[in-house]
Design a protein around this nucleic acid. Structure first.
Lengths: 262, 262
DNA sequence: AGCGATTGTCTCTTACAAGAGACGCGTGTA
DNA sequence: TACACGCGTCTCTTGTAAGAGACAATCGCT
């Protein structure tokens, strides 16, 4: 991480030793806060994004002044600020799909009692955009904003429907193909899954993210053939075939309703 | 806002002609998009923030890559992106007051049928953080994220409670004291209003923002004496004294409930 | 009290980003 | 067809922001 002692130039990314553009540092700061999910001291922040302390202080001050970040009570820690919330609401406001999708997801989880999610691609990564927990006693993990490798999910297979193999290859790294249980998925199998999901119009995966759940997903189209998002349900892996079928039907129905608008 | 054609050097700010830091440009871009409330072409954006075209293109590309902005369908216009939405949700998540306040505002407007709002200070400006429209046939204006001069509102008087006169003076410009109908408020009167609101524990203003409404507001405390937010109701100016009293009671009750946590 | 770690501020240098402006392309309109 | 206009990309220069590092002030531990 730290001192730039030259040596082997790793593939792809440049060694983050040199002078960095302020904006990039800011983007890293925001991303870092997104992962921590809580306020953090400026010193730690500097360490976290591997930036010089003096620079970090300057940038944080700018961001706090602008309201993108806020100082936490004691005046030492920082976290996201009201401005970001306002901009976020602007985004929701300007985005029919998201607005209606959130609604529909909430409905779905209330009606079925299962955990329900709205998922989208976010700069090439699978992202849970909105989640509603469901009523089961044991918590099925899934937090809004979580990013997961595409091959681990049913939604991922739908979101990539219609893309060329080369494009798909570009969007998943080798690491992404290694499932949480250690198994390695073959790229060709993944591509085949995608093709199949595209035809059947839904997708089910069992025990991929964890061994106890399966994931049902249906595509939401923004234009014919263009998958803009997916709705999905996360259910216990031992859910009966009958109920699974029912849920898929419901899911496809709702996802189709979301697809109408342009 | 205005054009930047040099001439008289206004107090405070420097003329935005020279070389600007990239980060500042970005902050202006975001703010500009917030005011437009819709996607905009990059060329127009450059004009809007008075930045060189080449620079704007570079910055926008960075922001789009980072997901803070997104290209609109045809690939020419830009607007806020999913990342901002996610960060915004993080903010809500980490902010009990906001989370519960939104809920309470929604309840309040459903129960009373009136337009209800949650308001906070945002870098020294009064900001409507969340609004719920109410059921009256005529729309009472009030959009989330709207920023209004402090002296125009009942909430403004509560939010400044406990500040010194000098501090207050620093937060309101001369322009802010000019009401929408052209009348000019005296600073001393405003300061007196604030002191009064602090003691009575609520505030009512009639016909300030517009001639047809009055605004009822109650403070939400984050610590004893520290007003963190206000809840308010916007009602027709001819609302009877009796009903107004009822609503104020309800409002104060709910605001007090919000105040509990730390 | 004594010591190390951390925090916030400041100064100075230089690597480099911001900006000016030219270019090629597509589009509308006279 | 010719012209004016807006878009997106590139190149080159120079003003300046990123970063190294020193500093005093606090904090926490023994």
């Amino acid at each position: 991480m730290q001192d730039g002692n030259a040596s082997a130039l790793s593939a792809g990314e440049k060694i983050s030793g040199s002078r960095e553009k302020g904006l990039n540092r800011v983007l890293e700061i925001l991303e870092f806060l997104h992962t921590t999910q809580r306020a953090i001291g400026i010193g730690d922040l500097a360490k976290g994004v591997n930036a010089p302390r003096s620079t970090t202080y300057t940038l944080v001050r700018s961001l706090v002044d602008a309201g993108l970040l806020e100082m936490e009570g004691d005046g030492n820690r920082v976290y996201f600020g009201k401005k970001l919330y306002l901009y976020g609401m602007d985004y929701v406001q300007g985005n029919d799909l998201l607005r209606r999708g959130r609604q529909e997801v909430d409905n779905l989880s209330r009606e079925t009692g299962e955990t329900s999610e709205l998922c989208m691609l976010q700069s090439g990564r699978y992202t849970i955009v909105h989640a509603s927990p469901g009523t089961r006693p044991f918590r099925i993990s899934s937090a809004t904003g979580l990013q997961i490798p595409l091959p681990w999910t049913a939604s991922g297979r739908l979101l990539l429907a219609g893309l060329e193999k080369a494009e798909i290859e570009g969007m998943v790294s080798d690491d992404d193909l290694v499932l949480p249980d250690g198994r390695k998925l073959r790229l060709d199998d993944f591509v085949a899954d995608i093709a199949k999901a595209r035809i059947t119009g839904y997708c089910v995966t069992s025990g991929l993210v964890d061994a106890y759940t399966k994931c049902l997903a249906a595509p939401v189209f923004s234009a014919p053939g263009k998958v803009e998002a997916t709705m999905c349900l996360v259910v216990p892996i031992d859910t009966s075939e009958g109920r699974t079928g029912e849920l898929i039907g419901l899911l496809r129905d709702r996802a189709a309703k979301l697809s109408i608008a342009g």
